[in-house]
């Protein structure tokens, strides 16, 4: 376990359990999850334990992936962190606030683009600022800049139905970033895309993160995606989800597609595979 060995520029940002905290210079981690548990009541059935006692810290500016088998509760965990649903017990603290409802400085990207067909691309991106009544020249300029950052310049006035799935998800990414969130939460954002688009989007995300410096928490069930993107990969077990491993990916940024074919990359993939129980 690398957690705790806080040496180096790409040092660990996540530790398993309370005693393995990797405290930031400011004294408090950006996000702090302690003994988070989630139980769903089901009528006529036993209550469903989705998450069992998950604790880790999320450090400012880091990209953390939640990796686990389908249906293991990692999306549930992300939704708890986003304040969309409440944990049954445990501490969920982000940016010094006990999260029990969605926070204004969060941005969420869902599995589906969830664009509004009646709004143009630009108006879709501006939706969050409109809801906050913060619209204005500045927001529009920011939206246009974000769209050009994801390669969608010239598509501002187009309706979403005319875009491909990958383009739609890029619009959704811009929408999640337009109000300059401190934390970007992504729920299998590239899951619905084909392999090539997916790899393109991964590079795009790394690019955007380098520019915006946002802290990112991302749910995925792809091992290579998790390793390629993350500072830290939190590996979840099957339901009820527990934290089985925290992999500090020491590969330096900026990562290039070639990074995927290095022995170090493969070694991290192997370790994740072991944690998931699919390799030995």
């Amino acid at each position: 376990m690398i957690a705790g060995a806080a040496a180096g520029r790409w040092g660990p940002s996540v530790g398993i359990g309370r005693d393995e905290f990797n405290v930031e210079p400011t004294g408090r981690p950006f996000g702090h999850f302690d003994a988070v548990r989630k139980v769903f009541a089901r009528s006529g059935h036993e209550p469903l334990v989705a998450i069992e006692n998950i604790s880790f810290d999320l450090h400012s500016g880091k990209l953390v992936s939640l990796l686990g088998p389908s249906g293991c509760g990692k999306t549930t965990f992300l939704r708890i962190a986003a304040g969309l649903i409440a944990a049954t017990s445990g501490i969920v603290q982000i940016n010094g606030i006990d999260v029990s409802e969605p926070q204004p400085d969060f941005g969420v990207v869902f599995q589906q683009p969830n664009l509004m067909p009646w709004r143009s691309v630009l108006k879709n991106v501006l939706f969050p600022v409109e809801i906050r009544r913060e619209g204005g020249e500045e927001a529009v300029a920011r939206a246009i800049e974000l769209l050009s950052l994801v390669g969608l310049s010239g598509f501002e006035r187009v309706y979403p139905a005319e875009l491909s799935g990958g383009m739609q998800q890029r619009v959704a990414l811009c929408r999640a970033l337009v109000h300059q969130p401190k934390l970007l939460l992504m729920d299998e954002p590239f899951g619905a895309l084909d392999e090539l688009t997916r790899m393109e989007m991964q590079d795009l995300l790394l690019n955007i993160r380098a520019k915006t410096k946002a802290t990112v928490m991302l749910v995925t069930h792809s091992i290579s995606e998790a390793i390629y993107l993350s500072d830290t990969v939190a590996v979840f077990s099957k339901r009820p989800a527990t934290l089985v491993d925290c992999i500090e990916v020491g590969l330096p940024y900026p990562r290039k597609p070639e990074t995927r074919y290095t022995p170090a990359f493969t070694a991290f993939e192997h370790r994740a595979g072991c944690a998931l129980g699919i390799t030995r």
Binding site: A82, L84, P102, V108, M116, F127, I131, R132
Partner: peptide, 24 residues
Amino acid sequence: GLLELAHSLRASPLQIFMKVQMPA
């Protein structure tokens, strides 16, 4: 999905109605 998006942005019930439900 659109309702969840609006919820994640803390849209008011009136905003949800005017900007999401009605156009949909």
